[in-house]
Design a protein around this nucleic acid. Structure first.
Length: 207
DNA sequence: CTGCCGATTTAC
DNA sequence: TAAATCGGCAGA
């Protein structure tokens, strides 16, 4: 059996998918497959958690009030690229930019279930093969934005990366994995208690 | 330039 | 419950 993925074996989500209302994109991303290709091989994870950040009117968004700095610039580009930032000096967060050019919104990817490339991901995260991990380590392997980035080897070098490229993209079908539309739940976003009324927006999606 | 803080994670 | 650790940001 070949591990090589034939071009007909996967369907990348097109730019038009991302260039829609952010809440809809966030919901539709649940159950899709995040794909990362590195020299350690292909890592694939089923997306099970994400949060929508609605830009200028959202006090939890980096682009609140049209804040436009070197950091937030990718958010203003057309949907379908990566927005990656460092948090607490040591963890990366990966967003996919949504909506059209000039509308600075995104979806923060917060959790995946790895389905391919366990050892590559485990080496990225712990420097150990997957079967060397404890039960707890496996259970909490990529269930947070920083953990997800560590597992997939995502850092600032992928900021602004197009989701139409080959290093980092999202599919609704890849190889033997096919999206099954999940039951999606909504809740308050994590870690935005400072954001006044926006702290209560039900913009977190779980699959 | 100074000083504070964060879309987090982990260890104690 | 608190430390780790540093770029971004606002204000002086």
């Amino acid at each position: 059996m070949s591990n090589i993925l034939h071009h007909t074996d996967f369907r990348k989500l097109p730019p038009e998918f991302y260039q829609r209302p952010t809440l809809q994109v966030a919901e539709d991303l649940m159950g899709c497959f995040l794909v990362r290709s590195t020299d350690r091989g292909l890592i694939i994870g089923r997306i099970n958690e994400g949060e929508a950040y609605l830009g200028v009117g959202d006090k939890a968004s980096h682009a609140y009030g049209e804040r436009r700095t070197r950091r937030t610039e990718p958010l203003y580009e057309a949907g379908g690229i990566a927005y990656i930032h460092l948090i607490y000096g040591m963890y990366h967060c990966f967003n996919v930019v949504t909506e059209g050019e000039g509308i600075p919104q995104s979806v923060l990817l917060r959790g995946i279930d790895v389905v391919e490339g366990f050892d590559a991901a485990s080496l990225n995260r712990y420097g150990l093969p997957f079967d060397a991990l404890s039960k707890t380590q496996r259970k909490n392997f990529a269930n947070g934005p920083g953990k997800l980035c560590k597992a997939l080897g995502i850092d600032n070098s992928l900021n602004r990366e197009s989701m139409q490229g080959d290093r980092l993209f999202i599919c609704d079908s890849i190889g033997s994995h096919h999206r099954i539309p999940p039951t999606v739940e909504r809740s308050k976003r994590i870690g935005v208690d400072y954001a006044e009324e926006a702290r209560d927006f039900p913009h977190r999606f779980t699959a």
